[in-house]
Amino acid sequence: MHQSPLDAHSAASLPDALAAAAATAEEALEATKAMKAQHGKAAAFQEKTVGLQDAGATVAYLLIRSKAEFVGRA
């Protein structure tokens, strides 16, 4: 069974868990650059989207990172 990188942080503090989530989200965002868009407006450009990061993944990463930064300041 696949273990999520966040599983290791299940007993961690909220700031630590959010920092781990942000790191994982950043890795996932980078992985989208190798993918070809298949849905949404970007799907019309298929091969031209390879090498570009996914817009939805970018937003998700920014939200998670912002939460991690906010909680880390408390």
Rank of each mutant, 00 (worst) to 15 (best):
M1C: 09
H2C: 05
Q3K: 09
S4E: 01
P5E: 03
L6D: 03
L6Y: 05
D7R: 04
A8C: 02
A8L: 08
H9T: 04
H9Y: 12
S10C: 09
S10F: 10
S10G: 07
A11G: 08
A11L: 09
A11R: 06
A12R: 03
S13W: 01
S13L: 02
S13T: 11
L14N: 08
L14T: 11
L14R: 12
L14V: 14
P15V: 05
P15G: 04
D16W: 03
D16V: 07
L18C: 10
L18N: 06
A19V: 04
A21M: 04
A21N: 00
A21V: 00
A21L: 08
A22T: 06
A22V: 07
A22D: 07
A22C: 11
A23M: 08
A23E: 13
A23K: 12
A25E: 10
A25P: 01
A25S: 15
A25I: 02
A25H: 04
A25L: 05
E26V: 08
E26F: 11
E27R: 15
A28L: 13
L29C: 04
L29P: 00
L29K: 04
L29G: 01
E30G: 04
A31E: 12
T32L: 02
T32P: 01
T32C: 03
K33M: 03
K33D: 01
A34M: 00
A34E: 03
M35F: 06
M35A: 11
A37P: 05
A37K: 10
A37N: 09
Q38L: 14
Q38R: 15
Q38V: 12
H39Y: 12
H39Q: 13
H39T: 12
G40R: 12
G40M: 13
G40S: 12
K41L: 14
K41Q: 12
A42H: 04
A42V: 05
A42Y: 03
A42Q: 07
A43C: 11
A43G: 11
F45G: 06
F45M: 13
F45R: 14
Q46D: 15
Q46N: 13
E47F: 02
E47H: 07
E47C: 01
K48R: 13
K48N: 10
T49W: 03
V50W: 00
V50G: 00
V50T: 00
V50K: 04
G51F: 00
L52M: 08
Q53G: 07
D54W: 03
D54K: 03
D54C: 13
A55D: 10
A55T: 08
G56Y: 06
A57H: 05
A57R: 01
T58V: 06
A60S: 07
A60Y: 01
A60G: 01
Y61C: 01
Y61A: 04
Y61T: 02
L62N: 11
L62A: 11
L62F: 08
L63S: 06
L63H: 11
I64W: 02
I64L: 13
I64K: 02
R65V: 07
R65S: 13
R65Q: 14
S66N: 12
S66F: 06
S66C: 06
K67F: 14
K67W: 13
K67S: 14
A68W: 05
E69L: 15
E69A: 11
F70T: 10
V71M: 15
V71R: 09
V71Q: 12
G72V: 08
G72C: 09
R73A: 15
R73E: 15
R73V: 10
A74K: 12
A74I: 13
